[in-house]
Nucleic acid binder design. Structure first.
Lengths: 326, 326
DNA sequence: CTGTTAGCGCGTTCAA
DNA sequence: TTGAACGCGCTAACAG
């Protein structure tokens, strides 16, 4: 910056102003400075800028997994939208480990970002402390519940589970099952499983079978199907915690000669691209993935532009996408 | 920090040392300072630390897309490995737009990170300038070619395309096609397409049909199949630039009553989880996804620990995974 | 091993 | 509209 100032024949302060708040500098100086700094390939040091300015154009976002297409989609969307406003995303990933989340939140907070976005509502006490003592807007996304720490934008996973149960119950199904990936770690999947169980029991008086899959990938769907059929052979409908598991089960059903939906009804969750293309096409529950990303960005930007904007707590709801597997 | 120093009865420098280089402080002071800073909930300001220390525990990684499972996988792996060494990933995503890449690289460089990792070998002149004038190790990953800017870790996509062509040619196929997603933007897919075309022509004297898909998703695989069959009805083998497209084509083939591999042979690329589970199981080419992530991390850490470590240019190769669709 | 001191590169007052 | 000066919070020399 010193060099730019020297070449342009102005002071450091003027260079800073020309680049940061151009309207506060006379047009001729401004263009000269801009020209010089371009010619010299000057790139301001953001570290110094942030230290002096006490604000960082950084937004911390923490998700459980980058390979989960929901979070990847939300992140891709948020990256693009925030980038357009000059903010940079710091992305963290904790693999459904709340202790790791704690460390990541602490690390992010120490960059004092403009906003912090975390996934879900289950955090350690320390995470909560760090989050609430950081002087920026905090959004808990992908989950809806009472009293978020600051703002909450998501939907009720429990309600999504209930929706599935109600749908099965209305079809007169008695023997149902829910297959969920890593239910011990993924609170959202667990909430869906619990909602399903509770509502199905309530409506039909039958206890559904709950089976845990070891991951959310296709192959596990096939083995989970075998386990379900082993434990409860008369099962006539299965809800899955993810479309990939459901599709894996469809492939397996095909292999063992089970027809869908005749012999077995299958309900997915996620409405991934694949759900529209299987044979038969997969009936599934669609979470508001895009709406979440957009709402988070919109809300954060509002808070940043008008700091007195109040927090929100939004339930964006889910939708049943009726296709051919039920 | 001042408060911690006061309460612990030491100077600022000692607090800094106790937290940064504990071995340089006497055990009793160290424990006292650690205890006080924990009690006070002191979190060092990384911005200030980086400005003073002239090093940032930040590694910039730029990929074309977060929703592409390859990059997501590599990122997930790199996040975990780097985090264990105290580095934080800054993740950028440019959507196959080199101008956007240019802006992201510039933004990242201005945080002066410990290392910069970009995807591929095609960059704008400005990107190249920024990259080479940044004082940190630079890795171009996922692509292999001559003379990387600094280090290169990947494989030859052209060779992957040739492998597919050779495989088809050996089966005595005359009418083949290559379906690639957004070939106009994705240089790696284009390199595979070109390698395929060149080698197939060379070995069989037949020009293969090259078809561009609009995205890399399943639905497009189905429509691409229809287009291929429309333009070249006798096609007996198709290579795809991604497994998802291939699976979409398999679903569509099923719908129109084409048997695989009898009527049509299908070759994927990626060896995603789904490839092991379709009926029939998908024959595919596996890029060294995990090896890339590991090699990048290992190399960067070496360079960071021993700055005189030389650059590398690694070709990690691909592998044909023989299953049932060819 | 510990304290004192001098910046790191910039944004932002305050005067001019 | 511009320039001089200060300080953001910390680390790294240096001296003790």
């Amino acid at each position: 910056m010193e060099e730019v100032a020297k070449v342009a024949g102005v002071s450091l302060a003027t260079v800073s102003r020309a680049l940061r708040t151009p309207e506060a500098v006379s047009p001729k100086l401004r263009t000269r400075i801009e020209e010089v700094s371009r010619r010299l390939g000057y790139a301001p040091n953001r570290i110094a800028g942030s230290l002096a300015g006490a604000r960082t154009p950084l937004i911390g976002v923490i998700v459980p997994s980058l390979t989960n297409s929901f979070f990847a989609g939300t992140l891709e969307q948020m990256t693009t939208l925030f980038e357009a406003k000059g903010y940079q995303l710091m992305i963290g990933q904790h693999g459904y480990d709340t202790d790791r989340e704690e460390r990541i939140v602490a690390a992010f907070a120490s960059w004092n970002p403009s906003a912090l976005v975390v996934t879900g509502r289950a955090h350690t006490r320390n995470t909560l402390n760090t989050l609430s003592s950081s002087a920026c807007p905090v959004v808990e996304m992908w989950d809806h519940g009472e009293r978020p720490l600051d703002s909450g934008i998501g939907f009720s996973n429990r309600a999504a589970g209930k929706l599935a149960a109600r749908f099965f119950a209305e079809q007169g199904i008695a023997k149902a099952a829910f297959v969920g990936a890593i239910l011990d770690k993924d609170d959202r999947a667990r909430a869906r499983a619990e909602g399903f169980r509770q509502e199905f029991l309530h409506l039909t008086r039958f206890e559904p079978l709950i089976v845990t899959a070891n991951n959310r990938e296709l192959g596990e769907g096939g083995s989970a199907l075998k386990r379900v059929l082993g434990q409860q052979p008369e099962t006539s409908a299965i809800a899955f915690s993810g479309d990939m598991l459901a599709v894996g089960a469809m492939f397996e059903a095909d292999r063992i000669g089970l027809s869908i939906p005749g012999d077995l009804k299958i309900l997915g969750y996620g409405d991934l691209d694949i759900a529209r293309n299987t044979n038969p096409r997969l009936t599934t529950i669609r979470p508001p993935h895009n709406a979440i990303g957009e709402a988070v960005v919109r809300h954060v930007l509002e808070r940043l532009e008008a700091p007195d904007t109040p927090s929100v707590n939004l339930d964006l709801g889910v939708k049943l996408i009726l296709r051919e597997t039920v």
